[in-house]
Design a protein around this nucleic acid. Sequence first.
RNA 1: GGGCCAAUAGCUCAAUCAGGUUGAGCGCUCGGCUGAUAACCGGGAGGCUGCCGGUUCAAAUCCGGCUUGGCCCA
Length: 1069
Amino acid sequence: MADQYDPDSVHERVVAHWDAVDAYEQTKDHRSDGEDFFFVDGPPYTSGAAHMGTTWNKTLKDVYIRYLRMQGYDVTDRPGYDMHGLPIETKVEEKLDFENKKDIQEFGEEAFIEECKDFAEEQLVGLQEDFESFGVWMDWDNPYKTISPEYMEGAWWGFSQAHERGLVEQGKRSISQCPRCETAIANNEVEYEDVSDPSIYVKFDLQDREGSLVIWTTTPWTIPANTFVAVDEELTYQGVRAHKGDDSEVLWIAESCVEDVLSKGRYDDYEVIDQATGEEMVGWKYEHPLREAVPDAPEGEDALQVYTADYVEADRTGLVHSAPGHGEEDFARGEDLGLDVFCPVGGNGVYDESAGAYAGQFVKDADETIMDDLEANGNLLSRGTTHHSYGHCWRCDTGIIQIVTDQWFITVTDIKDEMLANIEDSEWHPDWARDNRFRDFVEEAPDWNVSRQRYWGIPLPIWLPSEARSASEPSSGQGPRDPVEWSGDMDDAIVIGDREELADRVDQDIDSETVDLHKGTVDELTITEDGVTYERVPDVFDVWLDSSVASWGTLNYPDQTEDFEELWPADLIMEAHDQTRGWFWSQLGMGTAAVGEIPYDEVLMHGYALMPDGRGMSKSKGITVEPQEAIDEGGADPMRAFLLAQNPQGEDMRFSWEGMDSMGRNLNILWNVFRFPLPYMRIDGFDPAEITVEDADLEEIDEWVLSRLQTVEAEMTEHFEDRRQDRAIETLMDFVVEDVSRFYVQAVRDRVWQEGDDGSKEAAYATLYRVLEETVALLAPFTPFIAEEIYQYLTGDAGYDTVHMCDWPEPDGTLRDVGLEDEIEVVRAVEEAGSNARQQAERKLRWPVKRVVVDVDDQEVGGSIELQAGLLADRLNARSIEVVGPEEEWGELTYSAEADMSKLGPAFGDDAGTIMNALNDASVAEPTVAALESAVGSELDQGVDLEAEMVEFVRNTPEGVASTEFEALDGGGVVYVDTTLTEDIESEGYAREVIRRVQEMRKDLDLEMDARIRVEYEIADDRVAELVKEREDLIAEEVRADAFGGVKDGYRKEWEIEGVDAEIAVAEV
RNA sequence: GGGCCAAUAGCUCAAUCAGGUUGAGCGCUCGGCUGAUAACCGGGAGGCUGCCGGUUCAAAUCCGGCUUGGCCCA
């Protein structure tokens, strides 16, 4: 057994042991008949190594899975990996030095997909190694991968279910488009950064009246698509005649914005000539400011008019340039108004032919030209620049553009009420995460755009009509075909739900068992039904859709149905708070759309891992603490213990090196507690099967620590059920450090040191054994390595092959005694105060004290001390313990008073000095003014009237007595320690000084624990030598000495004992 | 710009829901102890409970505003 706790070597040994005995497999088999518990792993994304947040997350999952297994559950523990998506595509593009989609086309779609797959698989291996390195036990041989055909089929199935319910549609939507990646990106993939942009004020000339509307924008490139101007219905707008030099013009601006706009336009002066509310302005027509350059720009009966909109604010000009072909709000309002959508911009951010003069230009590059044109045609009131936050692609950092494109949607807005009802079926920790954040998000969520115009993803399982055979052609013929346009009606589209259906319906011959479902394969497949040939739409799914089906994808549904029927929905999931908008949401949306239910019953939402100083971690900025670094520095168990000691409910966690070290120290204490009795047990051949706490002759302190153990078990279970494993490990560590190490082990050391057969010693062994055995079981979910090592050492062949097969310890009522726990709590409080008093009196614990008097103010406290007087005497090394009850006075106490001259002076004048001296000399038995008056009166031979405010009482203890106050239970009191020396006490004190030095010498000699010795000592002071000699029996017993004197070639050392020179020699017999 | 969460000793946190002298562990410091020894025990210092205002006899706690940090959304 190693002397020192070394997490790394423990780790190494335990991993080897696990491998040797198939510990993981055995543990799972052991529970295979248990009640099912369906845990679902939120799949980490395979584009990088595990960071501290992932590490925390997986460690949390591990602790709960291990705990649930110990509770008897058969836990599903299939890990998952999220392996599709744009982030991986961009990494591969970087690797291959690609710039845009064209490079991918040239490289070949299929080859590119292959590269993405290899990249994702490579990352997976790295992640998995990381997870295993800190002891996470999941089914690593059989992870679910979002790129496997079985899993992708799960996504198809979910999507087709949503389609069955009529929740799938194609539609135009304003989306955030990355012009480099040439795909729509989700709003939560947009990162905002501060940038410089144009800031222009533009005049839109009114048609039926004098003047122009003034709008403000930072995106000149959207002006070609301007379709209407929005106002606030309640706001007041003013028509002002503005003068600049000799010219003047009429401008319409919101009242509160007039001054500001006119100063921007550098006008000299103005007067208000007209006024209208937004409502009154509705229907005013205006000219498109870029009609010449963009002849196709919106026009028509309803276009180029003023409308109200709720997105208008009295800011800038109070009128808002609106282009339904771009902005999301503009689009929505335009749709309400039935306006045509004009979007002259392609997916790559380049104007198409409809943009007239600007065709072929990248929109951001066209800003300058457009502003020049506006200036030239007199429609530009002001141009400048502004700094604001603008959306960028989270992967390639390109500025996003809002454009309207055809996308595929799951129309979750149609089932919003159902989703809101479904979230009630889930229990969240913490509860506010559900009732505030999550509900808000669900309420505001728009339809889910699930299509991406990319390659590395699950292809949409939608086939649309593309061509039809002429009716006259024979069905087998290869005759001419007519292109067919899809009607837009989902009844005319084909949505495939699984591989079998795919194989059945496609024209080509494929094997449903082996077919790959990626673009490279399925793009080639066509379906011909009723003379119409259908082709797949080229899009792939938004990667969020992949993980949204994890609750059945984990179970390979629909390929296999049994587990799904048995287990679904998930009993528990746990992820960080960013998943409120991610996985928690996507699963709810998909679950409700496909199955009508929320796919999880319970959510544990934890926080983020932050830097020790509270900053967020960021790999790109190099601000991280790497898990591997933490493992190297502190060890896997201490790191886990630290992470698990953090509140897992919603709060962020600051990583702390000190915190981790502190956990390491606690584990070291456990190690020492465990190591302490081993040599003794070995000497005595203790057999834990032979002597258990049930039949040993327990002493009260044994009963106490066993009772504490039961209480700890009950508390820990409660904490685990509340999903507060941090409180559970804190409870356990507190027990190990405070109760077992600092109290119990100290209390039983003498018993363990006894030689030969001894019932008391055996009881201590049995107790320690039970405590350790159950403690390591309680610790096993948290720090699986050290728990295993100690467990194996303790139980040997008698136990399981792994501690993780143990049942979770349940409190045993027959071992629990709350009254006893209270009594010991009192003892510990009194002991602490007694130690303090000893220190004041400078009497070390080795020297016995004559007596300890405890003056209590509470019956229960006093009773506890009386009941535990023996233990207390032992702990305080006191010859006797006396209790003074709440109604009693300790007769040996006296009180004196300190005079306050600022009060005495005015009251007594010339006599004040004399009275002060009498007061200060007085000593009374009780702290009352009356007693003082009487004492002072007899001293001075005259009556004195004292007031309470004139004096302050001081408690005087008898000579040689020190005191300290204490508190315990609902009361407290004062501990008095009488350190008066007697010859007998001195004799024992000196003897113990000798004992301690001989023990140290035994240790220097590295003697076996039970080695016998001869001891010789010479002390310079005859009196001290005589006192020591009186206690030779005690010394002999304590140091295992057979005889005194006659040491010839022994180990000899000079000492100083309490200022007296001494020489001690020791030799093994 | 909006929502949610947080802010208490140098650090990590508890006490906040249900108002009543603020506490714990670690760290620091001083002293002690020594067959668990890189362990252990005791003492001490250390707090306008982020800021401002309100309710109340009384606010870390309830209410409002602000500041800072985190997450989410725009």
